[in-house]
Design a binder for these strands. Structure first.
Lengths: 210, 210
DNA sequence: GTCTATACAGTGATAGAC
DNA sequence: GTCTATCACTGTATAGAC
């Protein structure tokens, strides 16, 4: 055995060791959850010693919280439907459903959702963090869009918030739970497109102004 | 079954220690998940020694699998909508949505769902067990009911399977995820009733035969 | 701050007496 | 089958050198 220190291959970011610990912890936790990952494994993946990990994060729980919070905000922060045309109702609704499905069915989002749900008893606050970054944001965006649609007179939407919840529930369908349970493989573009069209069609029938 | 009047010393465990281990493990796993529960804690809760636990279950994993399988089937086996009238569409759909919500939002079902999702990476087969006992069963029941409704001409349902999925997705809404994330307290009868009525009303607008 | 080495508690699982 | 006592191992967290 050589005494030379092993340098991790993809440590190209000059953001310091704290960042590399955080990145390594992200990958480990997403892959295996909280309980199955040891601080040794995280330190090894980050290319630092365990003492260095503890120099930046007080405990495994604190590190987990930091990882989940950052991941939630980074993952769902980009969802926006501001640019869609409220007069092309069916096309825009189909696009919203498709973007929503691609977001929540992405491997990273599914893995994040799994570990939060699984550890919610131990980390109750993470539920609120995740909700604010994810479902709350997508719902608010959709609600605002439906408000613009109603203003344009293209649909009859007496309660935009309820309608947005129902639209997203329809889009989520049973696919989301099937992915959480590992019953379906990776996302298929055709399947997502079909689900998005079914969602928009059913929603339109229920809320058409005629 | 003997006719002799032989009174056991303790009425607490009429079904033997294997059953009491299973019952204790159910409570422990539901309360804290897989990783946070030790075999010592289960043995203590069952009132037996750890060696007795291992005399009946080969490993912690095997015990966990037995618990989850039994719980899934016991919990969701009773869901049936055979007795509902397909001509009283709105009332029957509201009842289905209400029963469905009461089932999936019950504390036991939520806790079961949590630990399965959280440990699905370690126990992939449990996803199939849970799906067959829960979502698959409720969907098949609802689909059969919608088939009878379409036969009676009360609704236009070209694809009963898709319609059943959409109906249950609408019923699940965002409440289910909020409960999984511990964001809502125990179920409120008025809230469930309201959600069930909204579900039935929206579904009826989308699938009315007129 | 970062490393090596280690303290200390807790875990799953088993041996042997009864 | 059931118990008590114990094993081998892994985990988190820390002490002390540099």
């Amino acid at each position: 055995m050589s005494a030379t220190a092993r340098v991790p291959a993809h440590d190209e970011m000059p953001a310091g060791k704290a960042e590399s610990v955080l990145a390594a912890a992200e990958q480990c936790f997403l892959a295996s959850g909280f309980g199955a990952v040891s601080m040794d494994a995280i330190a090894r993946a980050a290319g630092v010693s365990k003492a260095t990990v503890y120099a930046h994060f007080a405990s495994k729980e604190a590190l987990f919280g930091a990882v989940v919070t950052r991941l939630s905000e980074r993952r769902f922060g980009g969802f926006s439907v501001d640019a869609l045309d409220p007069r092309a109702v069916e096309a825009s609704l189909t696009t919203i459903a498709q973007r929503f499905l691609e977001l929540i069915l992405s491997p990273e989002a599914i893995a994040l959702n799994r570990i939060i749900i699984g550890e919610i008893t131990r980390f109750p606050v993470l539920g609120e963090v995740f909700w604010a970054a994810g479902p709350e944001r997508t719902r608010a965006q959709t609600e605002a869009f439906l408000g613009r649609v109603a203003e344009a007179g293209a649909l009859a939407v007496p309660d935009a918030r309820l309608a947005a919840e129902q639209f997203l529930a329809l889009a989520r369908g049973e696919i989301h739970l099937r992915h959480l349970l590992r019953l379906d493989g990776d996302i298929d573009a055709a399947t997502v497109g079909g689900a998005a069209r079914h969602t928009a069609a059913t929603f339109l029938r229920a809320f058409s102004s005629g």
